[in-house]
Computed example of a mutant assay.
Amino acid sequence: MTLPTPLTGVVPPVCTPLTPDSEVDVPSLTRLVDHLVGAGVDGLFVLGSTSEVAYLPDGHRRTVMETVVRHVAGQLPVLAGAIDMTTLRVLDHVRAAERAGADAVVVTAPYYTRTHPAEIARHFRLVAAASGVPVFAYDQPASVPLKLGADLVLELAAEGVLAGLKDSSGDEGGFRQVLLGARARTDISGFGVLTGSELTVDSALAMGADGVVPGLGNVDPEGYVRLYRSCRAGDWERARAEQERLCGLFGMVEVGDPARMGRSSSALGAFKAALHLRGVIACPATAAPQIPLSSSEVERVGKYLAAAGLL
């Protein structure tokens, strides 16, 4: 399908359901897609951080892309993460995404090795030159050594290298700089700016963001759709109430004991436990070496769901 420019709305980063032996659970993945599409989301982003892309071998990545694109069958756009350490490896993922039929790719700056801003710019230019689909930049400084600066993002947008930005930096000032710059420059058009910060969607949309990519949207896609539509309708009181309800639900990401697991194990484990409790996926397993939640931690996830009216 043709990607709307700019891309707008709620575009959840789709979790990757796994079997107990760490294979992609295809039936659960298609149920999850139906769960999201049925809620009225505007697009799907596979193979991002919430999809556990960093933990998945290439075969799993291909299975996820092919399954989701085939199952969606053009109902809405599918963006695929082409995320890896260096440009040549990213280009392999771009080609795989194109073969699978993805409508766009989402790319971080190179990581593992330290890079200069000029090398980051060259990376995105080379990827865009070789890609047959639009390229979105993914600003994820928690995992990538350098944050994507507003000036660089705007320069690449003006060149037509980037179709949009998914900003998960948590830097609201820098996010606003991109929004203001994209609005002010006459050489930028159709550039989509999406926030990845689940807890400040109402303020991001008030600033002029085009949409949201919420990991928690796997668990409660209807809530994010209501939030987005309330903001677009100018009903800021209703939007704030919905955002605050979602902030309460987001507390589930902290259920994991930090003495025995990292934040990724806790957050992604909570999302998958919630989807399992809601009957969407068959197994809440996360990819190794993440540590599974205990039964008492899963029970706490259930309490968050109940408090939010989801159980």
Rank of each mutant, 00 (worst) to 15 (best):
L268Q: 13
S143W: 09
A273Q: 03
T19V: 03
L277R: 14
T2V: 12
G174N: 05
M207Q: 14
F45A: 04
A239Y: 06
R263Y: 12
L32T: 09
P258Q: 04
E244A: 07
T50H: 12
G223W: 02
M85W: 12
D25N: 02
H60V: 00
F175A: 08
C283K: 00
G160M: 09
P57H: 13
L36R: 09
L146E: 15
L29P: 03
L311G: 13
Y55I: 00
A129P: 03
G174M: 04
A267I: 00
L162P: 12
L148C: 07
V53K: 00
A288Q: 09
L275D: 11
A82G: 05
I120F: 02
A209L: 10
L148N: 07
R183V: 00
A96F: 01
Y224A: 06
G262T: 06
L47R: 06
R260Q: 12
E52N: 11
A233D: 15
G38D: 01
T5R: 15
R61H: 13
G302P: 01
D187N: 13
P77C: 08
R89F: 08
L3Y: 09
F271C: 11
R95M: 00
D171P: 06
R70M: 00
I120G: 04
A104F: 12
P117T: 02
G38E: 01
L216T: 12
A267N: 10
A82M: 09
Y224C: 09
A39I: 05
S131V: 07
G279F: 00
Y304D: 02
L79E: 07
A270N: 02
P13K: 10
H123A: 11
E297T: 02
G211L: 03
K272D: 05
L91D: 04
D25G: 02
A285T: 14
P27N: 06
G170D: 04
T186L: 06
V69H: 08
Y55E: 12
D92F: 03
D257W: 04
T286Q: 15
D257L: 03
L3S: 06
D34S: 14
T50L: 11
H116Q: 12
D210L: 05
E237P: 00
A102R: 05
R62Q: 14
G174W: 06
R260S: 13
T30L: 01
G234A: 07
L162R: 04
E119T: 11
K147P: 13
R125K: 06
V219N: 10
G192S: 11
L205K: 05
S168P: 03
